[in-house]
């Protein structure tokens, strides 16, 4: 009742895109939002902020994808970017072990800062270069599971796995949002400050992250 008009409600989600310099973040989102890859005729001015409108089981979803600067020197700025985001897409290059290591660092940080409110997707990009693979499928998938994230394999070049990745992410974010709404419906009678990054009561931690993000010291 409190979350009135849920039927016609439009969900707005903010998703941050994290990943090292040349893992193909930009290609990934351009492929998803414009369906283009290394196209000479890309008219888009920029690929750092892109939006996509979706319709999932009759609900409208506005997806805003925030690209972040992946260079090491900007690492400390991460928290400014991913504040208030609903989801994070962490991209690594399957041929580059280092980029996977970076993803692990980000996961630790995100869990520490945002807890379980954020839906994480770990994405191994460039599977078209599978013969040069340096990150094993098993390792990546078991790591993802251990931190409560989902793992995907994509190729921006071949347009593989990208649509599924974002669709899945949206569904998970909707579930999280609905769970929050229910909590709010039970607790406070009026949505006093729903937009101001209100912190919902923590659930039990689903899984102990392998990276030890919960180390209280």
């Amino acid at each position: 009742m409190a979350a009135g008009g849920t039927g016609g409600k439009t969900y707005s989600f903010k998703v941050v895109l994290l990943g090292e310099g040349c893992v193909g973040k930009t290609s990934l989102v351009l492929r998803y939002c414009e369906n283009k890859f290394n196209d000479k005729h890309i008219t888009t001015l920029q690929a750092s902020f892109l939006t996509k409108k979706l319709n999932i089981t009759g609900k409208r979803v506005n997806l805003a994808i925030w690209d972040t600067a992946g260079q090491e020197r900007f690492h400390a700025l991460g928290p400014i970017y991913y504040r208030d985001s609903n989801g994070a897409v962490l991209v690594y290059d399957v041929t580059d072990e280092d980029s996977f290591q970076k993803v692990k660092n980000w996961v630790k940080e995100l869990r520490k800062m945002l807890g379980n409110d954020i839906c994480l997707c770990i994405v191994g990009n460039k599977i078209d270069l599978d013969k040069d693979r340096h990150v094993s499928v098993e390792e990546a998938e078991s790591y993802a599971e251990s931190v409560g994230a989902k793992h995907y394999h994509t190729s921006a070049k071949l347009n593989k796995g990208i649509e599924e990745l974002f669709l899945d992410l949206c569904k998970r974010m909707m579930e999280t949002a609905q769970a929050e709404e229910r909590l709010k419906g039970n607790g406070a009678s009026q949505s006093a400050s729903s937009r101001r990054g209100v912190q919902i009561v923590d659930d039990e931690p689903q899984a102990t992250p392998a990276g030890g993000c919960c180390s209280s010291g």
Partner: peptide
């Protein structure tokens, strides 16, 4: 920001990512 994007676009001839934009 839009001015910066067109500057990057003219220089690199591809859409600017955050890696280009922030610096």
């Amino acid at each position: 920001s839009k001015q910066i994007f067109s500057a990057i676009r003219t220089t690199k001839n591809e859409p600017a990512s955050a890696d280009d934009f922030l610096p």
